[in-house]
Design a protein around this nucleic acid. Structure first.
Lengths: 215, 215
DNA sequence: GTCTATACTTGGATAGAC
DNA sequence: GTCTATCCAAGTATAGAC
């Protein structure tokens, strides 16, 4: 239920701007809180605190915790969809896969909170996201077809296309989701851009090697 | 703080048996609850309900939620440590890596709850587990040395050993943690043993291929 | 050792003043 | 559109009867 527009155009515009700004602040705060505590563990109180707003203000923009979580997940799913257009039939497999791995890696690093919330949601049963997963499944089916085509044309070794996509997804996701552990193993406080570069290159080497298309 | 033993040997033994049994039941219920809701989202009330015990009974055995969670994490870490003795200097890399991937896969499937709680804990910052990660880091360092040795002996292509171990860890973990999504993509309700076998074989093929030691 | 009753805190959500 | 005050449910933890 949205609040009714203000009475004057001027006020309407101003309120609209305030509204957009507040919604963005709340969504950002909610992301941080959901990352830290998971859906059930997150509290509106802490989200409001992170946003620097009173609790009731959060409820004013989002009627319930589920609705707010849904908005965060929606935002995340939109981000995913906007990213992956790579892997097309006429591409060279080695180039296309390498570019795709780099794009996915760049994406999860740029949106690490989104990436973690997505993982957490799936990990805890995916009840709030299962209705949004269809575009994903469609995307995987489509790209599997492309990879299958490459294999039939003898451009790469026969590898199960879906498992290949899972492997790329898993290895890139892992770097962000398990970031603290990875850093701990490398003996660092935080991961740096050289680490990212080295890891990305290793993944490319292994996956392309596994497909028999190592440059 | 443990309750004092009972006054008689007979009662002591009986209570001890009851005690062990109840602790096991509670730990099992706690695992299920932590998987479903994460640490902060889990409630003692629901854990007690899953265990078929009154709330206060859980508090009798575990003074606080943090202590109970710690016990669950301890149990999980002990399980990890007991598993991975593979990857030794004199092994054939292809055989050893293949066996290791299979062992890890078998392990996460047999202990999927443990696997998910571990992932969830790392994902949400790892505050409760960071003191337990040292044996892990040591293990990775040790096995990295073994892999480095294989590379120096020309037994496999030069691949960053730590990244190789991460890749194996990530791909096997993924299959369990993202189980529902994987199943959804494959158009199934639940994953079956053939799916596991096929996925494991694909991972082996890709990773061994990436190391230039495909059989 | 077990469990009911309860103290105290936090969380989600709303009413209503401004 | 904003925010204080408040309701009520759920949460952790404990006291104390049995």
């Amino acid at each position: 239920m949205q609040p009714s527009p203000s009475k004057t155009d001027q006020a309407g515009l101003k309120n609209s701007r305030v509204r957009q700004k507040n919604i963005q602040i709340i969504l950002q705060a909610a992301e941080d809180e959901f990352v830290a505590s998971g859906f059930k563990g997150a509290s509106i109180r802490d989200i409001a605190h992170r946003a620097g707003l009173p609790k009731a203000n959060v409820h004013y923009y989002f009627n319930s915790k589920v609705e707010l979580y849904g908005a965060v997940l929606n935002h995340i799913m939109e981000l995913w969809q906007s990213v992956f257009s790579g892997l097309n039939p006429d591409d060279d497999p080695a180039t296309a896969l390498r570019q795709f791995i780099r794009a996915k890696m760049k994406y999860v690093l740029a949106h690490s909170n989104a990436s973690r919330i997505f993982s957490s949601e799936i990990l805890h049963g995916g009840q709030h996201i299962k209705d949004h997963l269809q575009p994903f499944n469609d995307w995987i089916q489509e790209k599997s077809g492309v990879i299958r085509g490459w294999i039939e044309q003898g451009k790469m070794k026969p590898v199960d296309p879906i498992h290949l996509l899972f492997t790329i997804w898993a290895t890139t996701q892992y770097y962000v989701d398990y970031g603290p552990q990875v850093a701990s193993v490398l003996g660092k406080e935080e991961l740096e851009s050289e680490d990212v570069e080295a890891y990305t290159e290793s993944i490319c080497q292994m996956i392309l090697g596994g497909c028999g298309i190592n440059s």
